[in-house]
């Protein structure tokens, strides 16, 4: 494991914890897209089924359990515990337009036509677009709480660090996974617009106002 992969995982963990704590502490999920959180729970569930079949390392298993646990805890807080604060009127992205094409693509383009591999491929493709409902919701409301922008920053940074990790592994190990790389590039590109606003306007403002 190289430093980019490790900082990528820690950035991802930070994003997940920031969001969970924000909802728990403020007892509110205002401005948070429940649909994106459901998609992330689906990503982790379909990707980490190998928890049941193979043990890779304590770190690997621990992180997967934490990711799955936090994802479902976040979905529970949004749709059950703090349901009254869920802004359903602005969380209107049609996720079926994401899940169906991604599901089809996973069957067409994969490394191996086995159930675990198809599910892994599905999770890779889905993760690259899972943030769209959240970005769509922010563009509709025109603003995002500062803590939400930090969540998005670390979430976007994690896959960007993975891209560097893959460049590193290609150069030093000859490791190369086209599916993960292409999906990772798409995923990171979706954050570019947000990264620009985060860096240029994030400083010193209480709300990040995104031009609708």
């Amino acid at each position: 494991m190289n430093i980019f992969r490790l900082t990528g995982d820690l950035s991802h963990l930070a994003a997940i914890i920031i969001l969970l704590l924000k909802i728990w502490k403020t007892r509110s999920c205002a401005g948070i897209s429940g649909k994106s959180q459901i998609l992330f729970a689906l990503v982790f569930t379909s990707r980490y089924l190998d928890l049941l079949t193979s043990f890779i390392s304590l770190y690997n298993t621990t992180m997967k359990v934490i990711y799955i646990g936090c994802a479902y805890a976040t979905v529970y807080l949004i749709y059950a515990k703090f349901k009254a604060t869920y802004d359903g009127n602005h969380d209107t992205f049609r996720v079926e337009f994401l899940v169906v094409p991604v599901g089809g693509l996973a069957f067409l383009v994969n490394h191996d036509f086995s159930p675990l591999e198809i599910l892994w491929t599905f999770s890779i493709y889905l993760e690259s677009v899972a943030i769209l409902p959240q970005l769509f919701m922010i563009s509709k409301t025109g603003e995002a709480e500062t803590i939400t922008t930090h969540y998005l920053f670390f979430l976007g940074l994690y896959r960007a660090l993975y891209l560097i990790n893959w460049i590193w592994r290609f150069y030093f190990e000859g490791f190369f996974d086209m599916i993960a790389i292409v999906a990772g590039v798409v995923q990171t590109i979706l954050y570019c617009d947000f990264f620009y606003l985060y860096v240029t306007k994030g400083e010193g403002r209480s709300q990040l106002s995104i031009p609708t």
Binding site: M1, R5, D9, H12, D50, S54, I56, S57, N60, M63, K64, Y67, H111, D112, S114, L116, E117, W120, Y162, N165, A180
Partner: peptide, 10 residues
């Protein structure tokens, strides 16, 4: 590709 290629990444 070798499907049993262990996926050590998250």
């Amino acid at each position: 590709d070798d499907p049993s290629l262990e996926k050590d990444e998250l």
